[in-house]
C-alpha cells in the first residue's frame, strides 16, 4: 500500500433544507486503501459518498482528487464509479450490455469490450451469464453485475453504498470476502459505506466512524476497537459497558465504589469521565477473589460464549465469558488496567 493521497475532503458541510447533514468533514483517502464510512443511519455517511461521486454538491467545502479541485465536476466526468445500494442495473439491458455500458460510451473497440466484459464476468463468478436478463438474477448475482459494471471501467476509486445490505447473512459474509479479494487483486481504492460494524472491522484498512454529520474517529479496525476515542465509538463498535467514573489522579480511576488502576493520565483531579470496558474484558472470578463483587442477574447462551448480566453496586455489567455462572450466584469481578478505557465526557 502506498501512501499517495487520492481523495481529500476539505471542510465539507452539507445542509438539506436548513437541516445540517454534514458538519465540517475533513478526510483524506490514500491510493489502494479500503476505507469504510461507518455509522448509524442518518449519520451522513451516504451523503459523504454521494459528494465524492458527484451526486450531491457540498454546501461549503471542497473535494480534491489527486490534489485537483473537482467540487464542480459532474459525475460523468469523475474517475470514480459507484455500486449503488439497490444495484440500479438497467432493466432494459442484459447482463453483458449492463457491464459494457460505460465502455460503449467511451466508444471502445467492440472486440475489446467483449473481452473485458468476459474478464469481469470471470472475476465476479458469473461466467456464462452474458445474455441473461437482469430480472432473472438473484440479489447476490445482481450485486455482482453491479460491481462488474463499475469495475470494468477501471476506476481509480470505487464507491460502494451499503452494497450488501439487501443480502442474507450467509451470502453477505461470502461477498465480504470476495469484495476484499477483488480489491486486493485489482489494487483499486474502495470507499465503502455501511452501518454494520462487523462488516467494517472485517474488510477495512481504515474505518471512519461518523455520527450526526461529524467524524468521530478515523483509524485502523484494531485501533478503533481497542482504543475508541469516545463513548459513541465504543458503544457503536461492538458492545461496551460505559460507566460514569471519576479520575482520582493519573493512572487511578474510581467507579463502582472501587479505585481501579488504569493506563490513562492527563486529566484534571476528580474530573468526571466515561469509563469503557468491553464485555469480554470483565473477568469473573470466584467470590472473594475479585476487586468488586456482584450477583448474576441473567445468562444467555450465544454460541461461542455466554452473555451474562452481573449487578454490582448499582451497575449492571455486561459480561462475555466462555464459562457460565449460575443465575443469582455471587461472583467476583476483576478488570485489568489495560482493559479500562477512559474517555472525556462529551456532554
Amino acid at each position: 500500500m502506498t501512501n499517495q493521497e487520492i481523495i481529500r475532503l476539505v471542510d465539507v458541510s452539507k445542509t438539506f433544507d436548513d437541516t445540517p447533514v454534514l458538519n465540517n468533514i475533513n478526510l483524506y483517502i490514500r491510493r489502494n486503501e479500503f476505507v469504510t464510512l461507518l455509522g448509524p443511519s442518518g449519520c451522513g455517511k451516504t451523503t459523504t459518498l454521494r459528494i465524492i461521486g458527484g451526486f450531491e454538491d457540498p454546501t461549503t467545502g471542497k473535494v480534491l482528487f489527486e490534489g485537483q479541485d473537482i467540487t464542480d465536476v459532474p459525475p460523468y466526468k469523475r474517475k470514480v464509479n459507484t455500486v449503488f445500494q439497490k444495484y440500479a442495473l438497467f432493466p432494459h439491458m442484459n447482463v453483458a450490455e449492463n457491464i459494457a455500458f460505460g465502455l460503449n460510451i467511451k466508444k471502445m473497440d467492440k472486440k475489446l469490450i467483449k473481452e473485458k466484459v468476459e474478464n469481469m464476468l470471470n472475476l465476479v463468478n458469473l461466467k456464462g451469464f452474458e445474455n441473461r436478463s437482469v430480472d432473472s438474477l438473484s440479489g447476490g448475482q445482481q450485486q455482482r453485475v453491479a460491481i462488474a459494471r463499475a469495475l470494468v471501467n477501471e476506476p481509480d476509486v470505487l464507491l460502494l453504498d451499503e452494497p450488501l445490505g439487501a443480502l442474507d447473512l450467509k451470502l453477505r459474509k461470502g461477498m465480504q470476502i470476495e469484495l476484499k479479494n477483488i480489491q486486493k487483486k485489482l489494487g483499486i481504492t474502495f470507499i465503502y459505506v455501511t452501518h454494520d460494524q462487523e462488516e467494517a472491522l472485517t474488510m477495512s484498512d481504515t474505518i471512519v466512524v461518523m455520527n450526526e454529520g461529524v467524524i468521530q474517529q478515523i483509524g485502523t479496525p484494531i485501533d478503533i476497537y481497542n482504543e475508541p476515542k469516545n463513548a459513541f465509538v465504543a458503544d457503536f463498535i461492538g458492545e461496551s459497558n460505559i460507566i460514569d467514573g471519576v479520575m482520582i489522579e493519573d493512572y487511578m480511576v474510581e467507579f463502582a465504589n472501587y479505585r481501579f488502576k488504569c493506563l490513562d493520565s492527563g486529566f484534571d483531579p476528580n474530573e468526571k469521565v466515561d469509563v469503557v470496558v468491553r464485555p469480554e474484558d470483565v473477568k469473573l472470578v470466584p467470590k472473594g477473589q475479585g476487586m468488586i463483587e456482584g450477583r448474576v442477574l441473567s445468562v444467555l447462551f450465544k454460541g461461542v460464549h455466554y452473555e451474562m448480566l452481573v449487578q454490582s453496586n448499582g451497575i449492571k455489567w455486561l459480561v462475555h465469558s466462555t464459562l457460565m455462572e449460575p443465575v443469582d450466584s455471587i461472583v467476583g469481578i476483576n478488570i485489568l488496567p489495560d482493559d479500562i478505557h477512559i474517555m472525556k465526557k462529551v456532554r
Partner: peptide
C-alpha cells in the same frame, strides 16, 4: 438511481 448509475458510468 438508474439515472445516477448511467451518469456515474460516464453518460452526460
Amino acid at each position: 438511481s438508474i439515472i445516477e448509475a448511467a451518469e456515474d458510468l460516464g453518460a452526460n
